[in-house]
Nucleic acid binder design. Structure first.
Lengths: 145, 145
DNA sequence: AGCATGACTTGCTTTCTGCAAGTGACGCGA
DNA sequence: TCGCGTCACTTGCAGAAAGCAAGTCATGCT
């Protein structure tokens, strides 16, 4: 992709220029739906991202404000920002779509069913949960690096 | 991306392997939200996809069953399949996300507002409209090539 | 102090993208 | 019906990005 210059002001294009590649959304997914938080955690994900590509994506996603690094050096972890967390509804729709069209999907059927029946509630609930876990709620806001 | 083999059964990964690149979703967008239907239409889109890449993406999206070609040779057009149309809710969420986070977005404010206020209604309405325009509704189903 | 681990970087090969030019089949007007 | 232009792609590079393996360098446990 011509990552350096904006191709258009179309909102779909904006999203693609932010995370329209094969790996960025997997990092977001890890932060949203799993406990992976460190560099080696991400490397260990099933899909097998290359280490240089991971380093690059983490930098990009940080630069775009979708994630941020917490702590330094050895035990550094990554967390979602509000902007990253705002992708939750889109992610849920992607999960729903894939579950519908992938015969071999690993999406938990009851989770998918809940998304379809009660999308709003699932989103709200997960959002609250994630805000807490990523240090975005009122209690801990601004306390950590 | 390692396009040849499935990286995992994760639903987000499934979506990425289907259209996780810089261009595929722009074709879907064109079919969903504009009148572009032919090869040169897509080439003419503002973002400026390269002709060989467009040819490749059209083939891929067809192979995956997200779009289909209608007619042959000279006046061929492309249309969404049900599977492609099913991406509508995800696309609307992406529009909403980009509109929220892109200062210079071209997303029409009233469209965005409607998505946020009345997502279900917008999706249903657009879906009906698109089913008709892409030959997926009961009236014309199975009549065209 | 020493060693293992974690978080990246560097270097190299392979694959993909961007761009320009080319090809062949339609279809239309003379 | 014979050119001729247009459309829907292919082909051929050069440069960029991805994949893979190895290296670096600071941290922190013992």
């Amino acid at each position: 992709m011509k990552r350096t210059s904006r191709r258009s002001d179309c909102p779909i294009n904006f999203a693609l220029q932010a995370f329209g590649d094969a790996w960025s959304l997997l990092v977001i997914r890890d932060l949203m739906f799993t406990d992976r938080r460190t560099y080696t955690d991400f490397l260990g994900a099933e899909e097998g991202i290359a280490t240089n590509v991971l380093a690059d994506r983490l930098k990009r996603l940080q630069a775009l404000g979708l994630i941020r690094r917490r702590g330094t050096g050895r035990g550094a972890t990554y967390a979602l920002t509000e902007k990253g967390l705002d992708l939750l509804p889109a992610m849920l729709e992607l999960v729903s779509w894939s579950a519908r069209h992938d015969r071999h999907t690993a999406a938990p059927p009851d989770f998918v069913a809940r998304i379809r029946r009660d999308r709003e509630a699932v989103a709200t609930e997960l959002r609250t949960h994630l805000r807490r876990r990523h240090g975005l709620d009122s209690r801990s806001r601004g306390q950590e690096p």
